[in-house]
Amino acid sequence: MIALKDISKSFNGRPVLQNVNATFNKGKCSFVIGASGGGKSVLMKCMVGLLSQDSGVIDFDGRDFLNLDYYKKKELRQEIGMLFQGGALFDSLSVEDNVAFPLRMFTDFSNSEILDRVNFCLKRVKLENVNKLFPSNISGGMKKRVGIARSIAMNPKYLFCDEPNSGLDPLTSRVIDALIMEITEEYGITTIVNSHDIKSVFDMGDHIVFIYQGKSLWEGTKDDLRNSGNKELELFIKASEF
């Protein structure tokens, strides 16, 4: 479980996040939604430790991320998987080496054990016979799938997805959504997805947090989404569906 308590962050005196509170449960797929520039990406960067919040607590199952020492932070980070908007695959490494990277870096597995795990992860995201290809030789959708395979290689407890459907056609978007959903349920991961894609939210959002101008305005399930009673959220959904 990840709990956010009064997270605030500002840049050059301009507040981007103001007292954001939310709870993301284990084995559930939670969505953070909101308009562009609303603070979703900054919130995710704070959660994964790329930015430090000015105040508030980010609690990973009882561990306050900001106050952990260097080595504890490193340990916690190895429990985190992240799917980036552009995939963020290492250009100089093949698909196989990309997925194998965290295993080579943090485990003492033999080469054959690593290869087995890589093939398992690639098969899990429905990619086969692409091991030797480089990121520049594969499509956007495949890059996302390789990104997912790399994220799950270390059996993460927490999975963060930053706009996983951006730049993808509707069909591939649904494939990626289904994969994220399956993996979340299969491994009991705490998954947090940043998205604009309302279809994805309704398809797989177990829990939704709506961020508006840096504040968490609404939190609930997809069933409550249409009758939230929140003007800004209703407007956002209407505009997205239109």
Binding site: R77, F84, A88, M105
Partner: peptide, 17 residues
Amino acid sequence: GTMKVSEQIDALEIMGV
């Protein structure tokens, strides 16, 4: 620089590298 702007550095950081 290319690794930085294409979020590869961020990916390393998040992995704990």
